[in-house]
C-alpha cells in the first residue's frame, strides 16, 4: 500500500472538510494523537485494523457575504485543492476523504482536483467502501444515476469523495474532545502556501429567474386548499 506496507495494521487517512465561511485564512490541522479507533469493516486483513485520522479544515474569510457582492477571499475549488495538496503531499496518506459537494457553492470539484494534483486514483460519490490491506486495495461503490451503483476496485493510496450519509456519523466522545483540546491545532498561515492564480472569477450575482409561472396562492389555509384543488381540477390532474 503506497509506501506503508510495513505498517500492516495501520492505515493513515486524512479527512478534508469544507471551507467554513467567516473564519481566519489559515489551514487547521488537528491530529488526535492516540485516538486510533477500530474499524468494524476490516476487509480481508483479518481482525480489526486501526486508523490514524487527520482532519484538515480550510477556513476562509467571506466579507459581507454575497448580498454585498463577494469581495472577500473566496478561493475557487482549484485553489482549495492546491492548498490541501501542498500539505497532504508531504504526509503520504493512504486514504484521502472529501465530501462530494458542499451545500453552499455546490462545485463538487475539490476531491477530484486534489487526486489529479497528487497523481492518485479517485472515486467520487462513494457510498460504501471495503479495504483489503493485504493487497493494498480498496473496493468502493459509487452512486450513479437511477439509483444504480458502480463497483470499483482501486489501488491505495486513493482519494474518495463521499455522498451524504454513506456512513453513520462518528461523534467524538467527551474524553476525546478534551484530549483533542489539549493537542491543539497546527495552523499553517496562508502566506506560506503557494499563490494560485485564479482561473475563473465571479463577475455578478443575481436572484434566479422563474422557469415557470410560479403562481402564489393567497388567502387562509382553507382558501389555499380550495384554490389548489380548483387548479388541479382545471388541469385535469385530479378528479
Amino acid at each position: 500500500m503506497g509506501g506503508h506496507r510495513s505498517h500492516h495494521c495501520y492505515i493513515r487517512r486524512v479527512v478534508c472538510l469544507d471551507p467554513v465561511a467567516k473564519g481566519i485564512p489559515q489551514i487547521h490541522q488537528r491530529v488526535p494523537n492516540g485516538c486510533h479507533f477500530p474499524v468494524k469493516d476490516s476487509g480481508d486483513a483479518g481482525g480489526d485494523f486501526f486508523v490514524q485520522d487527520t482532519i484538515v479544515q480550510l477556513m476562509v474569510v467571506v466579507n459581507n457575504a454575497w448580498s454585498a457582492g463577494i469581495r472577500g477571499h473566496v478561493p475557487e475549488p482549484f485553489t482549495i485543492a492546491s492548498w490541501i495538496s501542498n500539505y497532504v503531499s508531504e504526509e503520504r496518506y493512504d486514504l484521502i476523504l472529501c465530501g462530494v459537494m458542499a451545500e453552499d457553492h455546490m462545485h463538487g470539484q475539490v476531491g477530484s482536483m486534489l487526486a489529479e494534483l497528487l497523481d492518485l486514483p479517485c472515486a467520487t460519490s462513494v457510498i460504501s467502501e471495503r479495504i483489503d490491506l493485504e493487497r493494498g486495495i480498496i473496493y468502493v461503490e459509487r452512486e450513479i444515476e437511477g439509483g444504480q451503483r458502480a463497483e470499483l476496485e482501486m489501488d491505495l493510496p486513493a482519494v474518495l469523495t463521499f455522498q451524504t450519509c454513506a456512513n453513520e456519523p462518528r461523534y467524538p466522545t467527551l474524553s476525546n474532545l478534551m484530549r483533542a483540546k489539549k493537542q491543539g491545532a497546527l495552523v499553517i498561515p496562508l502566506d506560506i502556501l503557494p499563490a494560485v492564480r485564479d482561473r475563473e472569477k465571479i463577475v455578478g450575482v443575481d436572484y434566479p429567474q422563474k422557469m415557470r409561472s410560479g403562481l402564489f396562492l393567497e388567502g387562509n389555509m382553507e382558501q389555499k386548499a380550495a384554490l389548489l384543488l380548483d387548479i388541479l381540477e382545471k388541469e385535469a390532474l385530479i378528479s
Binding site: H107, Q109, E116, A123
Partner: peptide
C-alpha cells in the same frame, strides 16, 4: 452527471483549465 463530475474537474487540472460546474446559462455581462 455523476460521470462528468467524476472526471471533469481532474481533466481541468490536467490541462491547467478553468472549471465551472453546474452551468445553466451562457450570458453576456
Amino acid at each position: 452527471t455523476t460521470q462528468g463530475l467524476d472526471y471533469g474537474p481532474g481533466l481541468a487540472v490536467r490541462f491547467g483549465s478553468a472549471c465551472i460546474t453546474g452551468v445553466n446559462a451562457f450570458v453576456e455581462k
